[in-house]
């Protein structure tokens, strides 16, 4: 079991609060805003606010996922390369992560604790290296989202199976979800069933609907063109 504290990539870069053109800024009369204490503000990407809840966002109902038949599959294009049953997956090396998560709907949650299998360990267990530079995360509800492989390696991401010391509840994507905390949380696909390596950066569910292809919260990449 390895422990790793989060370091916030690009922390403090918050260009949105500095106005580019002072002469042309529209001020909303009477709006003061709820300023965060500096120690909170420094951890919040631009446009985000801190929540103590754990909001649940998804396109449809939770899919029924049965651990007895659960399989996690790595594919290159349509070709399966390696797959694991739930028990086999549970035997892979495990890593803990603690830090902050950021949702495109503007909430951030601090000091969350996750545990799972890093993509590095997953690929090592499959005795493979990434065959392409991009992949699509694929879920049991047929949700998909695209992530560059470089954003998943070197401990940056995992397949998480535990949150706050317990199995991840179905509402939060259990039994297993992708976990890529340095990108907006829609990239951390719930109810993950596999990773599909793709030759090109291929838009997933939300990316086809106007959301940003990359989704860096510190550059506020919410939608295409941001």
């Amino acid at each position: 079991m390895r422990d790793r504290r989060a370091t916030l990539d690009g922390g403090g870069a918050a260009p949105e609060t500095g106005l580019r053109d002072k002469g042309n800024v529209m001020v909303t009369r009477g709006f003061v805003g709820r300023r965060q204490p500096p120690e909170t503000g420094a951890r919040l990407p631009p446009g985000q606010y801190l929540t103590q809840d754990f909001p649940i966002l998804q396109i449809g109902p939770n899919p029924a996922v049965d651990l007895a038949t659960w399989r996690f599959t790595i594919r290159e294009g349509s070709r399966p390369i390696k797959s694991w049953s739930w028990d086999e997956f549970g035997a892979l090396p495990r890593t803990r992560w603690a830090g902050d998560i950021h949702c495109v709907t503007k909430w951030s949650k601090f000091d969350t604790e996750w545990e799972g299998v890093t993509i590095d360990d997953l690929l090592a267990a499959a005795d493979m290296s990434a065959p392409t530079a991009y992949l699509l995360a694929e879920s049991f509800d047929d949700y998909t989202t695209n992530v560059p492989v470089a954003d998943l390696l070197n401990g940056k991401a995992m397949i998480a199976t535990r949150y706050a010391g317990a199995p991840i509840h179905a509402d939060h994507g259990g039994p297993a979800r992708l976990f890529v905390p340095h990108l907006y949380f829609w990239k951390s696909a719930k109810w993950l069933k596999g990773l599909r390596f793709t030759g090109t950066d291929t838009a997933g569910y939300w990316e086809l609907r106007g959301y940003h292809m990359y989704g860096d919260p510190w550059r506020e990449q919410r939608y295409i063109g941001d």
Partner: peptide
């Protein structure tokens, strides 16, 4: 398992850019 991604609305597949507008 039913398919979510098979129901992509045609209009949604077009590129779109959301920029800020005064209101």
């Amino acid at each position: 398992m039913s398919s979510a991604t098979s129901e992509i609305e045609p209009a949604a597949a077009e590129p779109m850019v959301f920029r800020w507008h005064e209101a």
